[in-house]
Simulated scan of single mutants.
Amino acid sequence: MDRASVRYEHFRDSGALSERFAGHLEHAGIALTPPVPGVCPGSSDIGNVSGRVPAIHPFVAIMDPDGSDHTPEFAEAAASERARRVLLAVVEALALTGLDVLRDPGLHGRAWEDLRRAEG
């Protein structure tokens, strides 16, 4: 397939999965802030995946709000203790969210309903 013909679809967030993930992060002591309106994460194949199965695409901070990625400061922050702490909490929250989907039929159903509603 010619790379020029690849089309990335719009990302569809599962509110049910995002809420569960956020709850697990908060339990780990990481407070989340709402996404900034109008800020788009850019094109990615996660959009294609999220149109077929319920998905989330969490973003977590390893820098203060005035920091920016793709900078020397970001590279330094990525090797910091804060980044290690956040990464471990994120990995645990993702694993727990996946476990919740397997163990909670209601969550499983709400996640699929989110997808059907997004297809709308």
Results as ranks from 00 to 15, higher is better:
49 V>K: 02
52 R>N: 10
39 V>R: 15
36 V>R: 15
33 T>G: 10
56 I>H: 08
35 P>Q: 06
37 P>V: 08
34 P>L: 05
51 G>V: 00
32 L>A: 12
55 A>L: 04
47 G>S: 04
36 V>E: 09
42 G>I: 02
30 I>F: 14
54 P>T: 08
42 G>E: 13
39 V>M: 10
48 N>L: 06
27 H>I: 02
42 G>V: 02
56 I>L: 11
32 L>W: 04
30 I>A: 03
56 I>W: 07
27 H>W: 08
50 S>F: 03
41 P>T: 14
36 V>C: 03
39 V>E: 09
43 S>K: 00
49 V>G: 01
33 T>D: 06
34 P>E: 13
51 G>M: 02
28 A>M: 11
41 P>L: 11
28 A>S: 15
53 V>N: 07
31 A>L: 14
44 S>P: 01
50 S>L: 06
27 H>T: 14
52 R>I: 13
55 A>M: 07
44 S>Y: 01
43 S>M: 06
40 C>W: 05
32 L>R: 15
50 S>C: 08
30 I>P: 00
45 D>A: 03
52 R>P: 00
34 P>I: 00
53 V>W: 05
28 A>W: 07
37 P>W: 07
34 P>D: 13
40 C>L: 12
57 H>L: 08
55 A>E: 04
31 A>K: 14
37 P>R: 09
31 A>P: 09
53 V>K: 11
37 P>N: 05
51 G>A: 11
57 H>C: 07
57 H>A: 10
42 G>L: 07
40 C>S: 10
57 H>V: 06
37 P>T: 05
32 L>Y: 02
42 G>A: 09
49 V>W: 01
38 G>D: 03
26 E>C: 04
34 P>F: 08
41 P>H: 09
44 S>G: 14
34 P>N: 07
28 A>T: 12
27 H>R: 15
30 I>C: 02
54 P>R: 01
35 P>W: 01
30 I>Y: 10
46 I>L: 05
39 V>G: 00
32 L>C: 11
37 P>F: 05
56 I>K: 07
32 L>V: 10
33 T>N: 10
45 D>E: 09
27 H>A: 15
30 I>L: 14
28 A>R: 15
57 H>P: 06
36 V>Q: 13
53 V>L: 12
39 V>T: 06
52 R>S: 11
56 I>A: 03
52 R>W: 03
50 S>D: 02
54 P>L: 02
40 C>T: 11
40 C>A: 11
44 S>D: 00
56 I>V: 12
33 T>W: 04
44 S>V: 11
38 G>E: 03
26 E>W: 09
